[in-house]
């Protein structure tokens, strides 16, 4: 057995063809969950049987927003919060494209919140994957629209006075056709779910809970393994649970699963129907 062959074995990875290897190492911290969510997304894309030349990824700004920079597909790292409207233009100008938005909770639900609800309402044919790490990681751990009540962040040093969004409820209420929530510990379910969402016609949304040990965990006494233990011990999988019961509470428990899977005409279906009717 030669050492050389061992090395070459180590140098190949099943996702190599989907990664921009010349951009590795990535920026994500040790213990961060984004990489796991990202690789689940890559596995789902790879096993989707789609022509990968027709798959695009769009990201906004933030740690998760760096996803578009690492995938070896046509990929767009846009402005803060604007991944969804950029993706909307991309999709409408070439409906043959499969467009995946990969971004974080701060990007998609604070600065980009308006775009999210309208894209869901329109049933724009996009797949939106939100890595929810409960805070703004890239800028050093500030409060987000998803930060739990009373949690400590650099901008809520006395505890968060606000109430976070229930993201699956928001997606459902806005009109999404597919809504799911997983954690990075549930990689198999997550990968399958992303695969389903990509195949699903219409606006699909998946929330992925992920630890941010450096910025969120450190200030809230949550070590990386503690968070994974919570994901394991405090989570229950309840498909089609009522979206109104999906408020996140790391202490009481987290409901995971696929909550919405419905069929509706997409924006483009309705645009063609309304504009092409005989007058």
């Amino acid at each position: 057995m030669s050492i050389q062959s061992d090395q070459s074995d180590q140098q190949t990875h099943p996702l190599d063809d989907l990664l921009r290897k010349d951009r590795i190492p990535h920026i994500w911290c040790p213990g961060c969950g984004i990489g796991t969510a990202f690789s689940a997304c890559l596995y789902a894309i790879k096993s989707s049987k789609l022509d990968l030349d027709h798959v695009s990824m769009v990201s906004g700004i933030g740690c998760s927003g760096r996803g578009a920079g690492y995938i070896n597909l046509d990929s767009f790292h846009t402005t803060h919060g604007r991944a969804i409207p950029f993706a909307t233009g991309l999709k409408l100008a070439n409906p043959d494209l499969t467009v995946v938005v990969f971004s974080g909770d701060g990007d998609l639900f604070a600065i980009g919140g308006n775009h999210f609800i309208h894209a869901a309402r329109r049933n724009m044919d996009l797949t939106v994957i939100c890595v929810n790490n409960l805070n703004y990681g890239m800028t050093g751990g500030q409060v987000a629209a998803t930060t739990p009540h009373l949690a400590k962040t650099t901008t809520t040093p006395a505890g968060n006075p606000e109430t976070p969004f229930n993201l699956p409820l928001l997606a459902y209420a806005s009109g999404a056709t597919y809504v799911a929530r997983w954690t990075i510990l549930h990689t198999r379910d997550l990968t399958e779910s992303i695969g389903e969402a990509i195949q699903k016609k219409g606006f699909s949304f998946i929330e992925v809970l992920a630890p941010c040990p450096v910025n969120y965990g450190r200030r809230n006494k949550l070590k990386p393994l503690d968070v994974l233990r919570i994901y394991q011990e405090k989570s229950i999988i309840k498909h089609f649970a009522s979206p109104s019961e999906l408020h996140l509470d790391l202490e009481k428990g987290i409901t995971l699963g696929k909550f919405v899977d419905q069929d509706k005409p997409t924006w483009l279906d309705m645009y063609y129907k309304t504009t092409r009717k005989k007058s």
């Binding site: 604007r82 950029f86 233009g89 991309l90 309208h118």
Partner: peptide, 17 residues
Amino acid sequence: MEDEIAAMASVLGASWA
């Protein structure tokens, strides 16, 4: 679109398609 920020973003996306 829902605002001019989104309008401009969609215009860029369309150009890249």
